[in-house]
Computed example of a mutant assay.
Amino acid sequence: MKKVVVTGGGGFIGAYLARRLLQDGWSVTVVDNLARGRVARLADVIAEIDWQQIDVRDIDSMVSAAKGAEVIFHLAAVNGTENFYNHPDLVLDVGIRGAITAIEAAARCGVPDVVMASSAEVYQTPPVVPTDEMVPLMLPDSLNPRYSYGGSKIITELVAFNYHREAFRKVQIFRPHNVYGPDMGWKHVLPQFIMRAIDAVRAPTTSDIPFPIQGDGLETRAFCYVDDLVDGLLLMQRQGEHRNIYHIGNPEIVTIAETVRLLGKIFGRDFVIIPSAAAEGGTRVRCPSIDKMAALGYAPKISLLEGLRRTSAWYLANERPALEGSLL
């Protein structure tokens, strides 16, 4: 079996990717220091995985983990909007030093292919929607800690394409757009909405339920179910070009208000949106162009309603852990 390394493999997308690679016959090494990742995400297949509980910023450990690999998928990062505001130093340190260490370890070990995760956050508020891969990247305000994540991903892309330029057979960047699904953590918009809905429907009332949100509800997103993301990522790695960038997402655009309405449909209640001031630095409009991926044969399959049903079912069955201050 060919060996693959997934950094951040205990994280949300990383765990889904690691599981799928196992199913496809790869020998999978997961690198994760468990600051945000959880072994439980892969508990049923952990005996089949080479789990390396190391920090992606540790070059000696990363070199040891990378030896003999055919591909490194570098996904390790500190994600979650709350973390961008509350832990920008850690977001930057893991994002930037982790990317440099991953590419350095790959070069030292002769790993031929490297795939690095970027983010839709590199655009902030894009001037063109749907947004293609050639829209200029943006850092609007270095004083706003929200941009710690987007800034670290811009640097990640520069590192991927400019460190050890001649060392690799294939280097690729993927920019995921608003990926969601079961067990994605607790510091993202959709889990917070789902938990708000769960708390609301458990309350003893039959009247319309107030549903507070940040912003006015007219902000738009294009949410991509995690299984569709993994399908696209593996397709990109197999058939995509060297030194290229690909959007992986779902072009099904929806307002935040419509997302809340769909949750009401799932939970069988009417939620009344209570708007408030938007977070400083938030993006009102986001939707990817996936034309480059479509040319490779990619097409997302899971509708937002179906994806929200699956995700809500998981959060209904799993209570939020009482770990104050932890990076989840």
Rank of each mutant, 00 (worst) to 15 (best):
G325H: 07
G297E: 10
D55T: 09
L263K: 00
P127E: 12
V135F: 01
L75T: 09
I198S: 05
Y180E: 04
D183K: 11
Y225K: 00
V272K: 12
T81W: 00
V94D: 10
N244E: 14
S289P: 03
I209D: 01
L234R: 14
R238H: 10
I72W: 00
A203M: 11
P212N: 11
Q52K: 15
V91P: 01
M116L: 15
P182D: 08
P204N: 12
I96W: 03
H74N: 14
Q214H: 12
L234I: 15
D208Q: 10
K187P: 00
L92N: 09
G150C: 03
L262A: 06
M138E: 11
T206P: 00
V6M: 07
P182L: 06
N178H: 09
L143E: 12
V189I: 15
S148K: 03
T311M: 07
S148N: 06
I173N: 02
F193Y: 14
F223G: 00
M236Y: 00
V111Q: 07
N83C: 09
T125V: 06
M184A: 15
N178T: 14
D183L: 05
Y298T: 03
A102T: 14
I59E: 07
M1R: 11
A77K: 06
Y315D: 02
Y16L: 05
A279M: 13
L92F: 08
I46Q: 13
Q172E: 07
G268H: 06
D89G: 14
I290P: 01
G68R: 08
T81E: 12
T220V: 13
F73I: 13
T259S: 07
M134N: 14
R269T: 10
L42R: 07
R196L: 13
Q53F: 02
Q23F: 00
L42A: 04
V111E: 09
D228K: 04
F168M: 07
L17D: 03
T206E: 12
L92V: 04
D227R: 07
A120V: 14
Y149D: 10
G325S: 10
D208G: 09
G217K: 02
A47N: 15
Q124D: 13
R20I: 10
E319P: 12
L17R: 02
S148R: 04
Y163V: 12
R261H: 08
D208E: 13
A15S: 15
Q237C: 11
D270E: 13
R286E: 13
R175I: 03
R19G: 06
I173E: 04
C109S: 15
P88T: 05
Y315I: 01
L304Y: 01
G150F: 01
P204C: 08
M1F: 00
G37Y: 02
V63W: 00
F211S: 05
R196N: 14
A99C: 13
L296K: 09
G217W: 00
N178L: 10
T259A: 06
V189Q: 08
L21E: 07
Q214I: 06
V226T: 06
G307W: 00
N79F: 06
P127K: 11
E258F: 02
V114N: 02
R286T: 14
F161I: 11
D216L: 10
L22S: 11
S61F: 00
P321S: 04
V63S: 07
Y123T: 02
A277Q: 13
R196G: 15
P130D: 11
D216T: 15
R196Y: 02
I266E: 09
R243G: 04
I248W: 02
G215F: 05
Y16Q: 07
E280H: 09
E121C: 14
